[in-house]
Each structure stands twice: as C-alpha cells, then as structure tokens.
Nucleic acid binder design. Structure first.
Lengths: 211, 211
DNA sequence: TGTGCTCTTGACCAAATGGTCAAACTTGAG
DNA sequence: CTCAAGTTTGACCATTTGGTCAAGAGCACA
C-alpha cells in the first residue's frame, strides 16, 4: 500500500515512457519559453506534444512538475560554458572564448534562454535556490580566477562580477530580446549573429587587454 | 444614443477620475511588472489599488486596456534618454552619458524596465507596432549620428546597432535580472549600482575612444 | 491465446478569472 | 436642499484551467 505511483520514481522505464517524457519536455520548452509559466496552459502543451491532457498528467503529476523537470535539466547545460573557463589558460582568450560560447548558446538555444529570462524577470520564484547555490558558487569561483589573472598583470583591472554580468547580458540579449533585435535590424535568418560576434569580440578584447 | 461611455473619451475629467486612474496604473505597474500580463489578475490589481474589481472596470474597459494604457504612458519616458543624444556634442561623452542615464533609469524605474522585458521576452505581442515604428526610427536616426562621428574620426569604428544593443542589455540587466544580481552580489540596498556605473564607464570608454 | 501491466482518453469537477449589471451611494452645481 | 450625473459594489455569469477518474486499448510475455 502506501503512496504508490503508476509512473515510477524518476527515470523512465519503458521505451514509451522515455519517448513521451521527451516529447512532453520538448513541447513544454516551446510553450513555457514563449508564454512564461502562468501564461502557459496544459492544453497548449498537450496539443504541442500531440497528446491528451490526462496523458500529460500520467507522466508528470502536475504543471509545476513539468516546469521543474525542464529547469533541472537545463540548468546544467546552461552553466557549462562558465565551467569551461580554465585558470591556466591565456586569460584574455579564455574570456573571449566564453563570450563566444555564450553567444553561440543564445543562437542555438534561444528557448532555453527565454525560459530562464522569464523566470528571473519575475523574481526567480522557482529557481532561487539554484541561483543562490550552484550558480553563485560557480560565479564566486570564477571571479577568484579572474582576480588572480588581474593580480598577475595578464588582464586589465576590472570588477569580475560586473564583467560576468555584462557578458551574460550582452549575449543573452540576442535570445531574450530577439523580437526587438529582429524588428530593428530586420536580418535574414541569423545573419546578425556574425556581426554580434565580431562586435562583442572587439568590445571585450578592448576591455580586457591590459595596457 | 450611439456608443456612449460613462467614462469619457481619454483624459480624466473630475478629480476622482484623475486620482483613481493614477492609483490603478500605479497598482497595475506593480502587478504586471512582477507577474507579466497573463500572470496578473484583475483581483490582484484591484487589491493593490484598494478598489473593487468592478470599480477598476469602471475606469478601464478591460484588462488589456489597463496594460495598453501603461505601456503607452511608459514608452515615451523610456525612449527619452536615447533622444537626448545630441549630434553636436562630444561623441564619447555623449554616449557615456547615455549609458549612465540608462543605468539610472534601471535603478529608478525597475518596474518599468521589467514590464517591457516581460513583453519583449514573450515576443512583444502588444507593442510590436511601437517597436517597429517609433523605436526603430529613433534607433536608425541615432545610428546615423554615430556613423557620422565614426567617419569624422571622433569615435572608434564600431557597429552602431550592436553598440546600442550592448548599452541596453548591460544597463537593463540590473533591473530585469535584479533577482539574480542580488543573489550573487548580496549588496546592501542599491550599493552595487555605483560599481556598475564605474564598470560600464570603463567598458564603453575603452570601446569608444579612438586609438 | 490468455493474463496482467502499461498506456490513453472522454467525461467530469472545483476553483479561478475576466467581465456584466442593476441597485445604491456620493458629489457638486444651481 | 435638490437632483442629475458621477461613482461604487455585491451578486452573478460564462469560460478557462489544473486536475481526477473510471473505463477501455495496447503491449509483452508465458
């Protein structure tokens, strides 16, 4: 007896379960990233996934559970580019490579970027624990690396935290504010990302190269 | 006969009307900027305004009308800092002053910033006409000014559009992603805005000063 | 082929939500 | 003070929405 669930613990057991949970998360990413959590409905997600609403709720116990699963899955990939900054690399090039990686993610995974943006703009109600935990630790760690580089004279003296904020904001802008960027530039496809890459390389190269 | 409204055309006539429309817009700014359009309810706004729900709908015909009124009112102030860039000023200082003005607005009017952010992240469904019209015209105009400065050698050669995007993103980040910034920096009050101002001044000064 | 488990869904429910309305209460000009 | 216009709200309504349920369909394995 006790609390038994038809859908076992966490990992999908059967092929059907694996396929359907993936389909649902994919559809939910589409919908949540476009309308935010409260702006999205189970019907929308069900339709996007090609499943019935009760079927969604067979695989996930609730709407928030779908959202939580999505964010848990994505938070990892989202931090990867920052993790890859290595203390023993060439400082300016390490950071410029980070800028490019973040811009690449904004181009390749704009839905993921907007999902987080939606969350954080609204005060990060569902992910504040992860921001204060995982994210803050990682940022603190990399800020220390940057301070080390500055101390060694290989990097111009700047505030490492605000540097990281400016890298995040400038790169994610091309995903989160895509609608505005496209309205102003009227680009064909993703052509403007090349210009953005060149611009940001110049911007941060001038900022970081010591005199 | 014809279509008569208890609430006259646009401008409030009586003192009570003026006071209450202001109260409602103030409350709506609070609520919409925190939860987005779909995430906000009339009950929330009514409660925040200290009025009954039918009373809200006496002053505004619908929820979207409140939202639209807010955005119309704010769009103007939001573009002001950009308008103030003057072609016959000293280029680098004009642009750095613009950066500071935008940062100041992010500090003083974070709710307004988040209201727009919420809209644009979700594809700007309600303000795309203004973005493609007013905003784009103004940006195009200022981009031409910047190109003129570059041609005269008073400014380092950079893409004016991406420059403007990077100014918007870096400054608005402190309002839109306030929750994240505070979680990472744990500042007392708005202390971190001083550091941000210094950092952004350095960043853009290095970018813009010709060699 | 039979049997038990997994999977799917139409019908349904309670709560929330945007909006209406008629009746009651205020206000202010004459 | 009066009365018409402006203002306020309790009660109500239709729709949307997250979620439930029982019954049926599909699948795998002996």
């Amino acid at each position: 007896m006790g609390i038994e669930r038809h859908m076992p613990g966490r990992q999908p057991r059967t092929r059907i379960q694996k396929k359907n949970t993936e389909t649902i998360l994919e559809a939910a990413l589409d919908v949540f990233s476009q309308h935010g959590f409260r702006g999205s409905t189970l019907d929308q997600i069900a339709k996007a996934a090609g499943l019935s609403k009760p079927n969604l709720l067979y695989y996930f116990p609730s709407k928030v559970a779908i959202h939580r699963a999505l964010i848990d899955e994505l938070m990892q990939n989202w931090l990867d580019p920052l993790r890859k900054i290595e203390a023993d690399g060439e400082p300016v090039e390490e950071l410029l490579a980070y800028v490019l990686r973040k811009l690449e993610m904004a181009r390749e995974y704009p839905r993921e970027s907007r999902l987080f943006a939606n969350e954080i703009v609204q005060g990060a109600p569902n992910i504040m624990d992860k921001i204060e935990g995982e994210l803050k630790s990682l940022v603190d760690e990399k800020a220390r690396v940057i301070e080390g580089w500055i101390a060694s004279g290989a990097l111009a003296p700047i505030d490492p935290y605000h540097l990281i904020f400016s890298i995040w904001s400038t790169t994610q802008h091309y995903a989160d504010f895509d609608a505005q960027v496209r309205a102003i530039l009227r680009p064909e496809g993703d052509a403007h990302f090349e210009d953005a890459a060149a611009y940001l390389d110049t911007l941060f190269r001038r900022m970081l190269t010591p005199v």
